[in-house]
Amino acid sequence: MVTNERTITKWYKSSYSGGDQGECLEVARGHTEIPVRDSKTTPGPTLTFSTSGWAAFVTALKDGHLNAASCN
């Protein structure tokens, strides 16, 4: 668990963010759990996923099981 989100570094935008899709998702590398935040509200809340939870989420998106509509 990330106890202080201000200490999270190495944020990068998702490859699915940008252009006409809106820049909406950033992920940080190098942490035990996977921190995720809205790139339009970087001081806002951060979600954390277990590595298996993040892998399941990404797989569900790629397989079309979740609606990957615009983040606006």
Results as ranks from 00 to 15, higher is better:
residue 20 D to C: 11
residue 20 D to T: 14
residue 20 D to S: 12
residue 21 Q to Y: 12
residue 21 Q to N: 14
residue 22 G to T: 05
residue 22 G to L: 10
residue 22 G to E: 11
residue 22 G to P: 07
residue 22 G to W: 12
residue 23 E to L: 09
residue 23 E to T: 15
residue 23 E to G: 10
residue 23 E to V: 13
residue 24 C to F: 15
residue 24 C to K: 14
residue 24 C to T: 08
residue 24 C to P: 06
residue 25 L to V: 15
residue 25 L to W: 14
residue 25 L to F: 14
residue 26 E to K: 09
residue 26 E to Q: 15
residue 26 E to I: 15
residue 27 V to R: 02
residue 27 V to W: 00
residue 27 V to Y: 02
residue 28 A to R: 09
residue 29 R to G: 12
residue 29 R to Y: 12
residue 29 R to F: 12
residue 30 G to R: 10
residue 30 G to W: 04
residue 30 G to D: 07
residue 31 H to M: 08
residue 31 H to A: 09
residue 32 T to I: 11
residue 32 T to C: 07
residue 32 T to G: 10
residue 32 T to N: 11
residue 33 E to S: 08
residue 33 E to Y: 14
residue 34 I to W: 04
residue 34 I to T: 07
residue 34 I to E: 07
residue 35 P to R: 02
residue 36 V to G: 09
residue 36 V to F: 13
residue 37 R to K: 06
residue 37 R to C: 07
residue 37 R to V: 06
residue 38 D to S: 08
residue 38 D to L: 13
residue 38 D to R: 12
residue 38 D to G: 11
residue 38 D to E: 11
residue 39 S to F: 10
residue 39 S to Y: 13
residue 39 S to A: 15
residue 39 S to I: 12
residue 40 K to R: 14
residue 40 K to I: 09
residue 41 T to Y: 14
residue 41 T to L: 15
residue 41 T to A: 13
residue 41 T to I: 13
residue 42 T to N: 08
residue 42 T to E: 14
residue 42 T to C: 08
residue 42 T to Y: 14
residue 43 P to Y: 09
residue 43 P to D: 03
residue 43 P to W: 07
residue 44 G to F: 05
residue 44 G to L: 07
residue 44 G to A: 13
residue 44 G to W: 07
residue 45 P to R: 11
residue 45 P to D: 14
residue 45 P to Q: 10
residue 46 T to S: 03
residue 46 T to A: 10
residue 46 T to W: 03
residue 47 L to G: 02
residue 47 L to W: 00
residue 47 L to N: 01
residue 48 T to V: 15
residue 49 F to I: 04
residue 49 F to R: 03
residue 50 S to E: 08
residue 51 T to E: 12
residue 51 T to N: 10
residue 51 T to Q: 13
residue 52 S to T: 07
residue 52 S to M: 04
residue 53 G to R: 01
residue 53 G to F: 00
residue 53 G to D: 03
residue 53 G to S: 03
residue 53 G to T: 00
residue 53 G to I: 00
residue 54 W to K: 05
residue 54 W to M: 06
residue 54 W to P: 05
residue 55 A to N: 06
residue 55 A to K: 08
residue 55 A to L: 07
residue 55 A to S: 13
residue 55 A to R: 05
residue 56 A to P: 03
residue 56 A to W: 04
residue 56 A to N: 04
residue 56 A to F: 04
residue 57 F to K: 00
residue 57 F to N: 01
residue 57 F to V: 00
residue 57 F to T: 02
residue 57 F to Y: 09
residue 58 V to C: 01
residue 58 V to K: 02
residue 58 V to T: 03
residue 58 V to M: 01
residue 58 V to S: 01
residue 58 V to Q: 01
residue 59 T to A: 03
residue 59 T to C: 02
residue 59 T to G: 03
residue 61 L to D: 01
residue 61 L to F: 01
residue 61 L to G: 00
residue 61 L to R: 02
residue 62 K to N: 04
residue 62 K to P: 02
residue 62 K to H: 02
residue 62 K to S: 00
residue 62 K to W: 02
residue 62 K to V: 00
residue 63 D to F: 01
residue 63 D to T: 06
residue 63 D to C: 06
residue 63 D to L: 07
residue 64 G to R: 03
residue 64 G to F: 01
residue 65 H to I: 05
residue 65 H to T: 05
residue 66 L to S: 02
residue 66 L to D: 02
residue 66 L to M: 05
residue 66 L to Q: 04
residue 67 N to F: 03
residue 67 N to P: 03
residue 67 N to G: 08
residue 67 N to V: 05
